[in-house]
Simulated scan of single mutants.
Amino acid sequence: MTTRRGRRPAGSGVPLTFEVIAESLRERIRSGGLKPGDALPTQAALMREFGASSLTVQRAMVLLKQEGWAVSRPGKGAFVAHHDHAAADADDLDGSEATTPVGGTTARVEAMERALADAAQQIADLRGRVEALESGGGEPGH
C-alpha cells in the first residue's frame, strides 16, 4: 500500500514540508533575521529554497498567518506581523512558550478571522463564476 504525498503515519513525529518551512521562517523571526514589518520571502523563493510545490508553501504561509506570525497585504505580499509587546519578553521563555508569537491568542484569533474572511470571499467569488458559467454567460476573455 502506498501513502499519499504529504501524509504521515499517525504519531510519526516527522514534520511535513510545510511545517518545516513555517518553522524555518519562525526561527528567522525569533533570531531577528526577519523583523516586524519585513517582507517574507516570496512564494517562488521559498519553492526554490525548499524544493517545495506552491501548495506546500501556501500551506506554510496560512499556518504562519493563523498563528499570528505573518500578515498579508493584498497586492504586496506577506510580512512579519507587528506585536504589541517587546520582543525581548520572548527571550526569557523556554520550550514551547518561546515559539509562541508575542501577542499570543489575540493575534492568532485575529489571523484566523482574517483567514476565514478571505476564504468566505473566495467562496463567494467562485460561486459567482459558477453561476455565470451555468447561465451561459461565461467569463470575459475565456
Rank of each mutant, 00 (worst) to 15 (best):
V62L: 05
A39P: 11
S135L: 05
G75E: 00
I123G: 03
R26S: 02
V130A: 06
V71E: 05
E67L: 02
A70F: 00
G51E: 14
S135R: 07
E97V: 02
G68Q: 00
Q122K: 13
V130E: 05
M1Q: 14
A124G: 02
V62Q: 05
E67H: 02
V109G: 03
G137Y: 12
G37K: 10
R129Q: 12
L55E: 11
R28K: 04
P140D: 07
R73C: 06
L116S: 12
T2P: 15
S72I: 00
Q122H: 14
L63K: 15
L55Y: 13
T105F: 10
H83D: 09
S53G: 15
G51L: 06
S96Y: 08
A111F: 01
G77F: 07
G13P: 00
E113R: 10
V62G: 04
L55H: 15
R48P: 01
P74E: 12
E19R: 07
L55M: 14
T106A: 15
L40A: 02
G128S: 11
S135W: 03
D38W: 08
S31M: 05
G104L: 02
T100R: 03
T56L: 02
D89M: 14
T17C: 04
T105V: 11
S12P: 04
D38F: 06
P140V: 10
S54C: 07
D38Y: 08
A120P: 01
A70T: 05
A120K: 15
V71R: 04
E110I: 04
R4P: 12
A45T: 11
T42H: 13
Q122L: 11
D84T: 09
R28P: 00
G68I: 01
P9L: 08
G103I: 01
M47V: 04
R129T: 06
A124M: 05
P36I: 00
A22V: 01
T99C: 04
P15L: 03
E113L: 09
S24A: 13
V130P: 02
A107G: 06
D89E: 10
D94G: 14
F50A: 03
R108Q: 07
A44K: 12
A88K: 05
L64F: 03
E110A: 13
D89A: 15
V109T: 09
A132N: 07
T3H: 15
L46E: 02
F50K: 05
L126C: 10
H142A: 15
A115C: 12
A115S: 14
G137P: 04
E23L: 09
A111N: 06
K35M: 10
F18Q: 09
S53D: 05
D118Q: 07
V14E: 15
A111Y: 00
M47E: 08
P74T: 05
V57W: 01
G33T: 09
F18I: 01
G138N: 06
F79T: 02
K35A: 12
